[in-house]
Structures are given as C-alpha cells and as structure tokens.
Amino acid sequence: MQGPIERLQLFVGLGCRRGCPASTLNDLLRQTFQAHALPLDALAGLASIALKHDEPGLHALARQLGVPLLFFPLEQLAPFEPRLSHRSAASFKHTGCHGVAESAALALAEHHAAGSAKLLLPRTLSADASLAVAWAPPFGG
C-alpha cells in the first residue's frame, strides 16, 4: 500500500515577450499561485522553450526563487500539443510551438517524475507573459 505523497512538486512553464523583466514574471507567478491557493514552496522548477534561453528575466526569476530553469527544444515540446488546453496561432507564428507555457510545464514535469504529467493550471496570461502549472507522480510515488 502506498502512503500519501510526501511533498507536492509543481512545475511551471513560462512564455514571454522578448525582454520581459523578472518582476513581471514574478508577479504573474505569485498572483497565479495565490489565486489558486498553491504553495510557493512546492515549486520544483521553471521551464521554457529553447528559443528563450537568452532571456535575462527568466534566468533572474529562477535565481530569485532558487529553482532550476530548463529550456526544451521545439522537438521535445511538440509531442505535448494534443494535451494543450489552447492552441495559439500567435505563439506558433513566433516559436513554432502552439503553447509554450503549457508544453514546457508538461515537459518539465515528465522530466522530473515517474508518470504522465497533467496540467494543474492551464495557461494564465499577462500582457507580456504566459504561465502554466503541471504536476506528475514523483519517482517512487
């Protein structure tokens, strides 16, 4: 018999406009977690598309929160398309991915977990960024 999950781990995918500051990303993350009563200490990592690897705001946010930041190439995000809650034509035009935040959250959760990831929160939008939260069963869970 399995015991309860000892520690909830949440994985956040982020998309953003070029030059989006860490403060904007941090506000979106904190407001989203607060609005859905998610514990910030359950945040296990951040992810985005490889095209954003040079975005200072993403790196600064990860440092501020003390969590790892991973970037996934389009080829690793594309298989998640059927599981997205929304397909953005604008995102596809700019990145080749129909949903950066949701795809990155799912990819990160499956990278760190034992099973199929699920979107806990579909994309949340601000003027300059998008965020999604995923969860997956932990290894050994």
Rank of each mutant, 00 (worst) to 15 (best):
R83W: 11
S130H: 00
A134L: 09
D54T: 11
R83Q: 15
R87G: 03
S130W: 02
A132K: 02
R83M: 12
L25Y: 03
E110D: 08
L69E: 05
P79Y: 05
A42Q: 08
A42P: 04
V133Y: 04
H59F: 03
A105C: 06
C97A: 13
C16K: 01
L84E: 01
F92K: 13
S116G: 12
C20R: 01
K93I: 05
G99I: 09
L51A: 14
A109T: 05
P39G: 11
D54H: 15
E110I: 05
A42T: 09
Q76Y: 05
P56M: 10
A113L: 01
G19F: 07
T124R: 15
G45C: 06
M1D: 10
L74E: 11
Q2L: 13
A89S: 12
S116R: 15
A35L: 07
I5Q: 08
H36M: 02
N26H: 13
L70Y: 12
E102S: 06
S103D: 00
S23A: 15
P82I: 09
H53D: 14
L14G: 01
A44E: 09
P79Q: 02
Q34A: 15
R7V: 11
G45V: 02
G140R: 11
G15V: 07
F80K: 02
A136V: 03
L38Q: 09
A60D: 15
A62N: 04
S130T: 15
R63E: 14
A117G: 15
T124E: 13
H98D: 00
G57A: 11
L46Y: 01
S23F: 06
A105S: 06
G57C: 08
A113W: 00
S116E: 13
A107W: 00
A50M: 08
H94F: 11
S23H: 08
R83K: 13
